[in-house]
């Protein structure tokens, strides 16, 4: 593993019953790098995230994590049981040593400082997300994994969120893994976009938004700072069984072809 590398996935796969959820996934997350994972529902994005976090064990391949890596994880959904009385400040200190001041300044940076003593289960969806992001910041992580943080966020909120994530990367110099189900709009600041569909369909840097005027016309100029249209260059497609079909040769293939 290289010096700046935080996590390295080598040809990993996860199997449930007899079906592979993901297979043959390889990529690395480096310090100061933003990696965006995109793909349709059920394409194995969350599974891949759990693999690199060590929540799931790989059935094949290897996952290497740097030693003593401090991780902040924002799961796709987190439902707090009503029987659990827990306030925001306590929640933020739950998995690490974080001082009151650090909690306050982190909440301040996501505009949620007034929620400090609030009970977690009374927060609205938006407030809860601010708290989750503040929690991630306060741990001073080496790696942040955000699983679909843009769910239910409107367009201006999306730009704001992406700007926040970018500033986090700049401030903390941490690696960031961002999961999105949106196939076409990703963060312009992404260093690497990985398109998953049970395997790595394609990957690379996002094309800048300015190159695609037609997309801008659709969403307006204000999206320019944080967003980019991601151009897919698939060299294969999937038939109804999910099996691979090579476009170039127009014949069934069995191996995973990345461009």
């Amino acid at each position: 593993m290289l010096d700046g590398t935080l996590v390295e996935l080598q040809n990993v796969g996860v199997k449930r019953e007899s079906r592979w959820l993901v297979r043959g996934v390889s990529f690395t997350v480096d310090k100061g790098e933003i990696v965006t994972l995109i793909g349709p529902n059920g394409s194995g994005k969350s599974t891949t995230a759990k693999l690199l976090l060590g929540v799931l064990d790989a059935n094949e391949g290897t996952v290497n994590r740097r030693k003593d890596l401090v991780v902040s994880y924002l799961p796709q959904s987190l439902s707090i049981d009503w029987t659990l009385p827990i306030r925001v400040d306590h929640f933020m200190k739950m998995t690490g040593k974080v001082s009151d001041d650090e909690v306050r300044s982190a909440l301040d940076s996501t505009g949620a400082e007034h929620l400090f003593k609030e009970e977690l289960r009374v927060l609205s969806g938006g407030e809860f997300q601010r708290v989750m992001i503040a929690r991630a910041i306060s741990r001073k992580p080496d790696l942040i994994v955000l699983d679909e943080p843009v769910q239910g966020v409107d367009f201006s909120g999306l730009v704001e969120l992406y700007q926040l994530i970018e500033s986090l990367r700049d401030e903390l110099n941490c690696g960031i893994v961002l999961i999105s189900h949106d196939l076409h709009i990703v963060m312009a600041a992404s260093d690497n976009v990985i398109c998953l569909n049970g395997h790595v369909c394609c990957s690379g840097t996002p094309k800048s938004v300015s190159e695609s005027e037609e997309y801008l016309a659709l969403f307006g100029r204000q999206v320019e700072p944080g967003l980019a249209l991601y151009k897919h260059k698939h060299d294969h497609t999937h038939d109804t069984d999910g099996a691979l079909i090579d476009i170039r040769e127009n014949s069934r293939i069995t191996s995973n072809i990345d461009q």
Binding site: K50, L53, G54, V55, V71, S72, Y73, P75, L78, I80, L84, I86, F91, M94, T95, G96, R139, V145
Partner: peptide, 9 residues
């Protein structure tokens, strides 16, 4: 609170 969160962190 969350098994995944606790494991990941």
């Amino acid at each position: 609170v969350s098994h995944d969160l606790a494991t990941a962190e």
